[in-house]
Design a protein around this nucleic acid. Structure first.
Lengths: 215, 215
DNA sequence: ATTACTAATTCACGAGTAA
DNA sequence: TTTACTCGTGAATTAGTAA
């Protein structure tokens, strides 16, 4: 478990190289006695979170990974995450509109994204370089629009994130059962974006996705 | 003191609005009993880190500030901080060269920045918009080159950060007793940057400063 | 100087439970 | 349901100290 002792060691740069750190110093900085600091370092070492050689301390990869994950999660929630994609408009097959129009989805969008989308999706093909960012995005906490059943057909849930396309508020959606691969972002907005932004197939657009930010 | 309970609350977005969070939930997520979670929330409330109204929890500004500070510090150390300045070359008064040439400083640069600088400084005037970033930079942990006394004269310490100017490794220095204001960044590098980058007064350059990153 | 053991102590914990 | 009280227990902490 990542403790304040690990945070202190990381602040000291003990993840890059062995750093001379005494138990007394840790004690003072984390508000415990020297003996407790000693015990904590021993137990961190036993748990494989640090290694010690000759009074110098190194934080292990394991601990670095855990710490980074925790910090990222909290900081993303605290400050939001912004990812910018550059892409080009590509033609859809009209399938998007059918899904977006579904009443239950509409209700979900209105409630969770705070707008009623225009019945249609704008497909943006992102560059090779942005695929990595796309994967990063999917690690962010999404706004989930629940799926539902409609007699014969099942409509899966939709993960979404608020975004701005060329500065206009919108949302990027990742339907559970998407027909699109990693290359295409599906965008919905309160209006017909093609008209509003005068877009046609091949137009270049900038999509700035902001995760972990409220309406 | 910022605890894992605060982190959990922040992940839940309890810094933006009151969030319904039960003691049982906190207990489960932080690996303690419901009773302990209850006690911890009570003590957080007593310490003014959270407030509770009708089962909903909000994290106070005080706690948010502390958490942000801690997270930033650790994350900066872990991942380094990168700040990009755009600026223009301006003429110096030759004073920089005199200081940089001092043997003691030279030794310090070589040891801490891992290069022997060309005896001269390149002055980059940054835009209005970048002043804020400059202040941000000075909050980062600097590489400190110690000052010294030379009989009559006192040479103050120099704070420095590694950087890349138009992609070339260099360092930006902030002498304790600088003649420059907030507008000008002083750059040193292993070579004559004016020649190497074919710069003249007024040339536009990009300076990417990377703090908290080793040589 | 620093580390970490043992012994004494405390105070944090979970169980049980009332509201 | 959830919260938070009391109480008994022991794990975690500090003091003292040896190495």
């Amino acid at each position: 478990m990542i403790s304040s002792v690990i945070f202190y060691l990381l602040k000291k740069g003990a993840h890059r190289e062995p750093v001379r750190i005494t138990t007394g110093e840790v004690a003072e900085q984390t508000g415990v006695s020297q003996q407790t600091a000693s015990r904590k370092l021993i137990s961190l070492e036993r748990d494989g979170l640090i290694t010690r050689v000759g009074g110098k301390v190194v934080v292990t990869e394991k601990a670095i990974g855990e710490a980074r994950k925790l910090l990222r999660e909290v900081l993303d929630s605290l400050e939001g995450t912004s990812l910018v994609f550059n892409g080009k408009i590509v033609a859809g097959i009209g399938e998007g509109a059918f899904f977006v129009k579904q009443k239950k989805y509409m209700q979900g969008f209105d409630k969770l994204l705070c707008f009623k989308p225009f019945p249609g999706t704008l497909n943006v093909s992102i560059g090779e370089n942005d695929i990595e960012k796309r994967l990063q995005l999917r690690e962010q906490k999404a706004i989930i629009i629940n799926g539902f059943k409609d007699g014969k057909r099942t409509f899966g849930k939709i993960a979404s994130y608020r975004c701005a396309i060329n500065g206009i508020p919108a949302a990027v959606i990742f339907p559970e059962m998407s027909v699109h691969g990693l290359q295409v972002l599906e965008i919905i907005a309160p209006y017909n974006l093609r008209k509003k932004l005068s877009l046609s197939d091949g137009s270049e657009v900038k999509v700035e996705v902001t995760a972990n930010i409220p309406c």
